[in-house]
């Protein structure tokens, strides 16, 4: 059963009650929330995700709620709770839904030990996974959304989970987070995209999430083999341009974009170098999404056979 099949009333009951347990790739989340904004965004963006049994095991227990003090009414706030603890200061109530997504990112990046977690988008097409590491603002999520809306399988737009055991990427296909101008850019690029509510005045500006394709969610147990590393950089007016990068240089760039490379020690180095050894690596400058997608399609052809 998936979230949509629960129906609105049952979804509300579960979120308001002991929580809804749902699965995203390798982990299960128990989400509780008494906030309608979270309920409506979640039902829009997570319709295709499998529901786990009520009494099933959950890796992360998340609760997003209003405080019990005056801030319930005066400049209302939202609180993110993880396993009964409050790891962050409250945010404005209007940011309840993105707070849930950001908080869950933190849960994953700080509590998963058997994967090298790379701050990157990861997508797959024709058996080849492309890893796009990068700091916020380089155009990574925009490019990721565009590729997934043109048929690439989404593994993640934020947290690439590379298994230390088999060096494959575990899909975690959650909604893709867009910021500011990228929201309208993607809405125009793919009018069929399901985009959740816009939340303004966050620390990142205006944010909105794009629903992951149902096929990506359905294939969340299907790991992918890394074959390409592409470091994207949006440059206004630039033609799409690939610049080859040495594998050691690419590995250094990735190491600087991980959450737990140091914590994993030698296992992190071994996993990273094993991955990079099977990849072709590039820097990539672009300004137009269609050109970028054409370039990625050509890269796939170059990696076949």
């Amino acid at each position: 059963m998936n979230v949509a099949a629960l129906g609105a009333a049952e979804l509300r009951n579960r979120l308001h009650g002991d929580g809804l347990v749902y699965r995203v790739g390798p982990y299960a989340v128990r989400l509780r929330s008494s906030i309608d904004q979270v309920l409506s965004a979640f039902s829009c963006l997570y319709a295709d995700y499998p529901v786990e049994p009520d009494d099933g095991f959950a890796d992360f227990h998340v609760y997003v709620h209003r405080p019990q003090n005056l801030r319930r009414w005066y400049r209302p706030q939202a609180i993110f709770e993880f396993d009964g603890k409050v790891p962050f200061k409250p945010l404005p109530f209007s940011q309840s839904y993105p707070f849930f997504e950001w908080g869950l990112n933190w849960c994953v990046s700080n509590h998963i030990s058997n994967h090298l977690i790379i701050h990157s988008a990861v997508l797959e097409n024709r058996g080849q996974a492309v890893v796009m590491p990068g700091n916020p603002g380089v155009g990574k999520s925009t490019l990721c959304a565009a590729l997934m809306l043109r048929g690439w399988r989404l593994l993640t737009d934020e947290l690439g989970m590379l298994s230390v055991d088999d060096c494959l990427f575990a899909p975690v296909p959650r909604p893709v987070s867009l910021k500011n101008n990228s929201i309208d850019l993607i809405a125009n690029f793919a009018p069929e995209a399901v985009i959740g509510p816009r939340c303004e005045d966050t620390v990142k500006g205006t944010v909105a999430h794009v629903r992951a394709p149902a096929d990506s969610v359905a294939r969340a147990a299907e790991k992918a083999t890394p074959r390409l590393v592409v470091l994207p950089q949006y440059v206004e007016g630039a033609n799409a341009q690939l610049i080859p990068l040495s594998r050691p240089e690419a590995a250094m760039q990735i190491a600087g974009n991980t959450f737990n490379y140091s914590r994993l020690g030698l296992q992190g180095f071994a996993t990273l170098t094993r991955m990079i050894d099977g990849c072709r690596c590039f820097e990539f400058r672009y300004s137009r999404l269609d050109d970028a997608i054409d370039t990625f399609e050509q890269l796939l052809v170059g990696g076949e056979g």
């Binding site: 040495s246 050691p248 240089e249 190491a255 180095f269 050894d277």
Partner: peptide, 19 residues
């Protein structure tokens, strides 16, 4: 620990945990 490719080398210094 060493990794060499494309005329460049990565070295991981185990005691310091640096690359």
């Amino acid at each position: 620990h060493w990794y060499c490719a494309d005329d460049e080398t990565l070295v991981y210094y185990e005691q310091a945990g640096t690359t």
